[in-house]
Design a protein around this nucleic acid. Sequence first.
RNA 1: CGGGGUGUAGCGCAGCCCGGUAGCGCGCGUCGUUCGGGACGACGAGGCCGGAGGUUCAAAUCCUCUCACCCCGACCA
Length: 497
Amino acid sequence: MAKEITNRTENYSQWYLDIVKKADLADNSAVRGCMVIKPNGYALWENMRDQLDRMFKETGHVNAYFPLFIPKSFLSREAQHVEGFAKECAVVTHHRLMNDPDGSGVIVDPSSKLEEELIVRPTSETIIWDTYRGWIQSYRDLPLLINQWANVVRWELRVRQFLRTAEFLWQEGHTAHATKAEAVAETLSILDIYTRFAEEYMAMPVIRGIKTANERFAGAEETYCIEALMQDGKALQAGTSHFLGQNFAKAFDVKFLNENNIEEYVWATSWGVSTRLIGALIMAHSDDDGMVIPPKLAATQVIIVPIPKPSPEIGEAADKVMKALRAKGIRVKYDLDDKKRPGFKFAEHEMKGIPVRLGIGMRDLENGQVEVARRDTKEKKSVPFDGVADYVAQLLDDIQQNLFDRARLFRDTHTTKVDNFDDFRSLIETPRPELSESWGGGFISAHWDGTTETELKIKELTKATIRCIPLDAEKEAGQCILTGKPSQGRVLFAKAY
RNA sequence: CGGGGUGUAGCGCAGCCCGGUAGCGCGCGUCGUUCGGGACGACGAGGCCGGAGGUUCAAAUCCUCUCACCCCGACCA
């Protein structure tokens, strides 16, 4: 069999790029750091987006759209915020082009310089809170639960398809509340949605936690996150939900009159997940044969391959199967290509991650059966023709569950409790060539004295950072692995994407 | 943004050192034989060698500058 995808153990980064290419998810573009999301990749995003959108709406959120451009002065209103984003902003300075007088093309018209430069949004807190000032006067206007689906730009120096691109697609929720308690509750309720989405739809187990001060969103009081472990033993932040306190309300002067006719600043949250989740999906489930997509997010859940090629008899049988599958809400396609041979198609559909493949040939028709192959384990089985829809419906559920179980087992077996710095270090530094040529060490659960100084020191020594303080961590007295100072509980360390 | 590497046909690469009419494998098109795990044969199409300057009678090849991608580092979802 011709091998077109690099093995994970050989070169994990190359494997990742090969998957993106061979599963036809994205292309590089003419612009550095910006990618073209191709139909296969975009279909994944659409399914993610649609599901998340349903979940947001079920919890009372509505969608709106705010401008791509933010006046430069807005960004500097919140000190922490501007500090966090200043280094990666694209700036619009002019609004017109003209023919180059020397005839060599087109140049920026110097006379079109903008009075105030515009920032291409890296995130929209500032322009949204500037808008909210006009929308909120009374406690009756609250809560304001708004989400937007948009693109943002962060001028990244080092980019990787889906994981870190200069432009990416995301959703950003921005809510306004009358009380601190309500805003905190919102932050956590969104974290629940993200957790459910990651685990039930992406089949990707996550750790819910709080970011340390050092890793907190610029301008937030508290950042909550979900963290997932990738197959190379590195952590990926899959979603964040921020409690913003009254920072933005104060910066943009957003006040409301409470029931007692007293003026107060509004409490805020913001939260987001991005196309990065597609990168997470790849690194959570895919293998050396290609992409593996959880059934709930697959644009095509079942592909029917006629063997050896389309024929009226097989087409008729395929139609019946498709009808039965569609009646159960299963997304199915029939491979009508009569040029490619079956073996080639098998490999191709596996590369693209379609969860289930049905093979129908003359032999199957004679025996009244269909060959069912599952992508996750690559097992094949012949199933009686009449029972195929039930069987496949159950199989899709099984695959979804198996992917989650497999990923959770992987995470659990690569999460290590460590009680001294030497063990910590050797865990991070010991290569695991059987897993990945660039093994990151997995999650490490260890005690930390709570100071940024220690956190940074550990990062400097090992490259590992504190991914989060897990929400469900038990209280456990211990000693910081670096300084030996007292600690009340373990935090989760890892090398991170 | 610093260090290293790579840009030649859709993809993977050779050619560059030592300048002289651009090659290979895969893929692609047509026809035939095939077809239950990436078929085979014949014929054929496809490239101003990433881009811009320069040196030269002559540049994929030498020089300068740029752009993009990959790896490592600092920064980050």
